[in-house]
């Protein structure tokens, strides 16, 4: 029996429960495939169907991870890579946002800035590597620079596109209430571009992880990319697979953090998704 005087409350509670169970179901469904495959592979190696030399079974990968962890190597490499991505991401986001906002703020600045940046974007980013090494040396600076370039373009394009697609009708609401430039930016433009901006940040972060590997391939003595190169040169496929696994986890984790951090500002969008 439903008590209608409380229906609002019970409805909200039911919503929360439903959302949580859907969340758990989502995780279970998403994990089914990789975990299932891992278990199958483990079984195949144990049953002698494969020697698991080129593709280690999960147990050996976890053993490798454990060994790397106890020597302290894992923490060292992990930290080096995370630090590079964090700094490169911060620089790429700051510059991409600033230039995107400048180019988006008026047709004139867009016509001045955009063609040059579009031209630079057409350069495959890895092509910058030799130049960055000559300019900035082979140590941290050139690596961070390369990551920043990777992060910059999706953020720049995202901001520019988001500003361009702000609905003129929404802006008119601000005009009717006589908002000044700053208030218009704060109360109308920012919230209007936020969803697209978060998508751009996520795309930028994804490229950040991609470019950190490229950067670390070009000569590094620490970092997850170094672990990959090291694993290849010394014939340690276990180490390569373990590192790939870490990349997958880091990428997913950082993306989830970004989504969680932006969620409070984008709650109004969830309404639609809940109805799906």
């Amino acid at each position: 029996m439903t008590d209608f005087s409380l229906s609002g409350l019970t409805h909200a509670k039911g919503d929360a429960v439903r959302r949580r169970s859907r969340f758990i179901a989502g995780w279970a469904l998403g994990l089914a495939l990789p975990v299932g495959l891992a278990l199958l592979w483990e079984a195949a190696v144990r049953l002698g169907l494969s020697d698991g030399r080129l593709m280690a079974p999960p147990s050996r990968i976890f053993a490798t991870l454990g060994a790397l962890w106890t020597t302290g190597d894992l923490a060292l490499h992990l930290w080096a890579t995370v630090w590079r991505v964090a700094v490169g991401f911060a620089i790429g986001v700051a510059s991409g946002t600033a230039l995107g906002a400048i180019a988006g703020s008026s047709a004139l600045t867009r016509r001045v800035v955009d063609p040059t940046l579009q031209g630079l974007r057409a350069v495959p980013s890895i092509a910058w590597v030799p130049l960055f090494i000559l300019w900035l040396g082979i140590f941290e600076t050139s690596k961070v620079a390369l990551i920043s370039v990777g992060v910059f373009f999706p953020v720049y394009l995202g901001v520019l596109g988001a500003i361009a697609s702000v609905d003129r009708k929404t802006v008119e609401v601000g005009r009717i209430f006589r908002l000044g430039r700053v208030a218009l930016a704060r109360r109308i433009l920012l919230p209007a571009i936020l969803p697209a901006y978060v998508l751009a940040l996520r795309a930028g972060l994804g490229l950040g992880w991609m470019f950190v590997v490229a950067a670390e391939f070009m000569g590094a003595s620490e970092g997850l990319g170094y672990l990959l190169v090291d694993g290849q040169q010394l014939g340690k496929p276990d180490q390569i697979v373990a590192t790939i696994l870490i990349f997958a986890l880091l990428g997913k984790l950082s993306d989830a953090l970004l989504v969680a951090a932006s969620a409070p500002w984008l709650r109004w969008q969830d309404v639609v998704r809940e109805e799906d």
Binding site: K169, V173, I176, P191, A192, W265, W268
Partner: peptide, 18 residues
């Protein structure tokens, strides 16, 4: 330009979705 004394209800609701 828009004035404080003048209010307008647009033909569409134009509520801010956020």
């Amino acid at each position: 330009a828009p004035r404080e004394e003048i209010g307008l209800v647009f033909q569409e609701p134009r509520l801010l979705p956020w």
